[in-house]
Design a protein around this nucleic acid. Structure first.
Length: 168
DNA sequence: CGTATTTGACCCGCGC
DNA sequence: GCGCGGGTCAAATACG
């Protein structure tokens, strides 16, 4: 935590719309179905998905459940049976081209573990949302073939406003 | 002082 | 039944 990343100062619009401190070249999104690794490389290697709007990509991430938008009314929260069961499965993998693994996506993450994978000389970092009640977990691992690439896997959806970091 | 971060150990599941 | 892998938690430490 010395250099971190050139993340913007304190912008009131601390959203993904800002701009990731990386060269986000390709992003991958998968469900909990499976991981077409081979396809991934083929896709990112032989196909450049232009740099659309990162916000769009990530926007979908929040749109999947309830990332940035907060329920204005607290009286309509009696439903949580099938919803929880259904949204309890949100695995999104992002392959990003960056040199820093501490990508700030607008949320505060607290590293809760580091493990070394046998198939890679690179360690695997486990992050979790600092906000209690957030079942969101992030797994960051460096690519074994391209150390300049990092595989960020998000699990779950944020259940809190957005971020209480650069806020007031 | 508080929070975030770090490393190690422990636990669980699955495979053989 | 035991071993291995992976994942998670906990305590300690460092830094802001």
């Amino acid at each position: 935590m010395t250099d971190k990343n050139p993340k913007p100062p304190d912008s009131p619009d601390n959203e993904f719309t800002n701009q990731w401190p990386m060269d986000l070249s390709e992003y991958l999104k998968f469900d909990d179905d499976q991981w077409p690794e081979d396809d991934i490389e083929t896709l990112v290697s032989g196909h450049v998905p232009n740099q659309d709007n990162q916000a769009n990509e990530v926007g979908d991430f929040g749109g999947s459940g309830s990332g940035s938008h907060l329920e204005g009314s607290s009286s309509s929260r009696d439903v949580n049976s099938e919803r929880e069961k259904k949204e309890a499965r949100d695995r999104v993998a992002f392959k990003t081209k960056t040199e820093v693994e501490i990508l700030d996506d607008g949320f505060k993450w607290r590293k809760y573990g580091k493990k070394m994978v046998k198939n890679s000389p690179n360690p695997r970092n486990y992050y979790r949302c600092s906000v209690e009640g957030c079942p969101v977990k992030k797994r960051v691992e460096r690519d074994r073939d391209d150390p300049r690439y990092v595989i960020t896997t998000y699990e779950g959806n944020h259940t809190h406003p957005v971020l209480a970091r650069t806020q007031n």
